Amino acid sequence: MSNNTDDQRPELEPPQQPSASDLLGEALGSAARRAGLDPAKEASTGHVVWHAMGGWRGILESVLPGLVFIIVFTLTIDPGTGEGDLWLSLGLSVGIAAVFTVIRLIARQPVTAAVGGLVAAGAAAALAVFTGEASNNFIPGFITNALYGSALLISALIGWSLIGLAVGFLMGEGTAWRNDPRKRRVFFWLAISWASLFAARLAVQLPLYFADNVTALGTLKLVMGIPLFAPMVAVTWLVVRALYRTETK
């Protein structure tokens, strides 16, 4: 008599592999959570924005190297040639970024932001030194703005807003937000708003780059940095929090 027990056992389904959108959403959500941008947590808007900027240290790490470069370059401009001391300006800028990194290492604090700033400052300085043009110090920033802006714009246009992917995984709903027309509209316009910020930076700064106006270019880069980034973080936070609070009522 044959035993058919094995034949009657249900076949186990192979584990489902996460899709590309799942992986990207998890990565974006994790990054947003580390930056303090978790709508599920009760926190004031001011606290969220301050945490996203990294507090006073994060602001100094973002602003001071570039500020020192502009000040030193401007103060050392030779009236005859119209050029500032490129080596001194870049050396002090990269040196300050290195000091911030060392301080974090000594204090055993997360060094991701500081190291990122140091690498960016070093790459920009190397490009400027290699070409002999101080304005080329800003090229990596242009590339970053172009990449971020393009990614956000394309994601919005194809219906897979990067803002939506990040928020969806922060709120534990994955990509289910795409089935809600209201959420899709909100995340579409948020992504468009962020893309517009990056596009505005390029539209204002590129003409100054081609005009080789290093002082004005550096000044506007600082003005269009944190002073524009902070309000965008606040608006995004408030809109997303309102969207999900309305849903839970």
Rank of each mutant, 00 (worst) to 15 (best):
R178N: 14
L202T: 06
G117C: 09
I226C: 09
T219A: 05
T101C: 07
V214K: 00
A107V: 14
N136F: 05
L12C: 06
A27D: 13
T236G: 01
S135G: 00
G218L: 00
L28C: 05
K249W: 06
F188A: 09
A134P: 02
E61N: 08
I192S: 04
P65Q: 02
F142T: 11
D78V: 02
L147M: 12
L228G: 01
H51K: 12
G141T: 13
S30V: 15
G164S: 10
I192K: 03
T5K: 15
V119F: 13
P207L: 02
L157V: 15
I226D: 05
A98I: 11
A97P: 01
L202H: 03
S62M: 06
D180A: 15
A113M: 13
D212V: 13
S161C: 15
G82Q: 06
R34P: 14
T215A: 08
F188T: 14
D85K: 03
P227M: 12
N137P: 07
F229E: 07
S21F: 04
G95H: 10
L86Q: 03
A216R: 00
G172Q: 13
N137E: 10
T215W: 05
W56S: 09
L243P: 02
F198Q: 00
L220G: 00
I96M: 04
L88R: 04
T76S: 09
P15R: 02
E83V: 07
P39M: 13
G159L: 13
A35H: 10
A123E: 09
F169H: 02
G80V: 05
V235D: 02
L90E: 00
A43T: 13
V186R: 05
A125G: 05
A120S: 15
L12R: 08
L165I: 07
S196M: 12
L197V: 11
L162M: 12
D22W: 01
L75C: 04
D7C: 14
L92V: 03
F188L: 13
F100D: 02
A40N: 12
R33H: 11
A31Y: 13
I154Y: 15
A32H: 01
G122Q: 07
G116F: 10
T236K: 00
A20N: 10
V111A: 08
I158G: 13
S21Q: 06
G54L: 05
A151Y: 14
G29Q: 01
S62T: 13
L23N: 10
A35R: 12
W160R: 11
T215F: 08
L222T: 04
V94S: 01
L60A: 06
Q8Y: 11
L23Y: 15
P18T: 01
T236V: 07
G149M: 08
V111R: 07
L64N: 03
L75M: 08
G54A: 10
L222M: 07
A176D: 14
L217A: 00
I139H: 06
A211K: 09
D180Y: 12
D7P: 07
G132P: 02
G84V: 03
L75H: 09
W189I: 09
P140F: 11
D6N: 10
K41C: 11
V115L: 09
A242Q: 14
T248P: 03
A121L: 02
R104K: 14
